[in-house]
Design a protein around this nucleic acid. Structure first.
Lengths: 354, 354
DNA sequence: TTGTACGCGTTATCAT
DNA sequence: ATGATAACGCGTACAA
């Protein structure tokens, strides 16, 4: 039913090789023939058969991007940055949503590998579990062996793998943020840690603990509360903090999304930010300046990290195998952090305000 | 370098046909041979060559989803619903971000077509431009001819196409919402229309205008302001409304995201919602109940619409060609709409509050 | 139950 | 400049 190269060739009275040449423009073709072929192409509504091309040329035009959550703006920024580079290199970006599941991550990597994708970019942090790491390393090895470039953007590639990585300074950023809070006078801080056993969460927690320790404060005198990275997680955590009338003057959320949730639920409970309690985020996504009050947070150069990852993936930028590109983090001090106020436990019970 | 069927066959001492049979399990294979083959498969780290398989079998395991914006939760809900069904049918979902560009939409459709994707689901509204419609119709025709099913989820398929559609009652929902506002006593309403020349925007505007007309109110006595569907668009529109001290008692945003932006910027300007001005949204995304005050909006059954679209796309649910499945809209009356207050122009200039 | 052999639609290498 | 033709790796009638 669908027209093939041969059909087009017959119609134009040439060989299929000539049609292929017209299509790819990599060999000289007489102007007259080219026109006849182009005509036939149009008349028959010819559409390249990708699989056949990929089989013959041993390469495809697909670049796969793995994201934890398609509807999280963190990944939106990453995905669109990568995509821009891919488009630049005439590659089709396909985004695969792993829902944070380690299994799905592996499944999608394998499926992209099957498709002989030109490259795979794995974004965001990942499970710290050794088994997963090992299986990932295996897949990376196979990918590279088959010519599929693999780039990690947001965590380090498994050790000894050929894959490049672009990583953000979660550790340093978290430490700087904590230092800012300490400098403002906060001592009783509640940390929402993000999902457990996750590279990003762990790095941020470690950074914060280090800053505390260096300031001579026992990290365990602070509160460490598990949460997700979603806005809903922040809402819930905020409500829980209020319910338990937790004794703290500052809340450090795992990221901006969570922070926005915390602020919303604190406000709903009549707790003022930053007068009663300071709140901080991480990432510096657009939401950080949408929120009232504007969020003190840590800026990660997500866009440029994504572009770098994209350039390595497309081959636009050539790097040594296993290279690790480190992107800096930068403090963004805004309104949501101020000097310690009455604290959460003091504010709770006040009349609800609007 | 990469092991092929033949390599595995040699290793296992069988023919490549047998290996293929073991792989696909569609023909009987002796238990002993199966084990030998499985072993060889493992030893050689065999990975199916997708393109080759797609070429031979004339079909692939890919389902493509086109979305306007990967980081918009509206599409997140749609994409994940479709993906669930795809996974159920052992298909790999690939999400393509068109950034709302009509050209990109066509490009991605074509690329998926090239890949001989099993199905393509085009989500969200689209350009109303006739040229785009025609070109889309062409692509749909070609897709269907090549065995790639096409489903639209959020707009109707081009006329006379074989493609199925799942549509949401934007028109009815918008009308119901406007009636609610009218019943509450509002007469001076500012509508943020969403992106121009876009099917979703138009349907919502048309519904609102109809409800106004039916109530004996001249639609042109209301304000119709172009905006986007993003939160940023809402922020900007809100600021603009305040700056111009627009004379209205209610703002109807194009969707929930925009509404949340409007609320944020109104609050930042000291305008109280709903005491001074009522605000309404559309879609009933999770953000609708996150916002303070909770948003009065129109619930669209996005999840179940996505599932339906997914089932049609995977072939799980068989439907007549060109079928249009209509999903209802349902009013969700919450806190953000109340009786008319002082209005925007009245509130502006009041001391900024926190 | 298993093997042989051909076709799927392209690209790329030789000739011409 | 153009045409034959051999891969590319897999699925599947058909034969055994």
């Amino acid at each position: 039913m669908a027209a093939t190269l041969a059909d087009v060739a017959a119609r134009a009275g040439v060989s299929s090789a000539t049609v292929s040449r017209v299509l790819n423009g990599n060999y000289p073709v007489a102007e007259a023939t080219r026109r006849r072929v182009t005509e036939a192409l149009r008349e028959l509504n010819y559409v390249v058969n990708g699989p056949a091309r990929a089989l013959a040329a041993a390469t495809s035009e697909v670049l796969g991007v793995l994201v934890n959550d398609v509807s999280d703006p963190f990944f939106g920024v990453l995905a669109s940055g990568i995509q821009r580079e891919a488009a630049e290199a005439d590659l089709l970006t396909m985004i695969c949503h792993t829902a944070g599941s380690a299994d799905d991550e592996l499944r999608y990597m394998e499926l992209l590998l099957r498709q002989r994708a030109r490259a795979i970019v794995v974004t965001g942090g990942g499970p710290e579990d050794g088994g997963h790491r090992r299986r990932t390393a295996d897949l990376v090895r196979q990918s590279v062996a088959r010519g599929t470039r693999v780039v990690f953007c947001g965590r380090e590639a498994p050790p000894d793998s050929e894959a490049a990585s672009v990583v953000f300074d979660n550790h340093g950023g978290a430490a700087a943020l904590t230092r800012l809070l300490l400098a403002a006078g906060h001592r009783r801080i509640a940390y929402l840690t993000g999902p457990p056993h996750h590279t990003t969460s762990s790095a941020r927690v470690a950074g914060a603990r280090q800053a505390l320790t260096e300031a001579g404060i026992d990290p365990d005198s602070c509160l460490w509360i598990r949460s997700g990275f979603s806005r809903a997680a922040g809402l819930e955590a905020g409500r829980e903090l209020v319910r338990a009338a937790v004794d703290c003057t500052a809340v450090v959320a795992g990221n901006d999304l969570t922070a926005s949730g915390v602020i919303a639920s604190l406000r709903a409970c009549g707790v003022r930010v930053p007068e009663d309690v300071s709140v901080a985020g991480f990432d510096d996504l657009p939401v950080a300046v949408d929120v009232v009050p504007e969020l003190t947070t840590v800026r990660l150069p997500l866009r440029s990290g994504a572009v770098t990852a994209g350039r390595i993936a497309t081959g636009t930028e050539r790097t040594a195998p296993g290279v690790v590109v480190r992107m800096p983090a930068e403090l963004r001090s805004r309104e949501s952090v101020a000097a310690p106020g009455g604290g959460l436990s003091g504010a709770v019970g006040l009349p609800r305000e609007r």
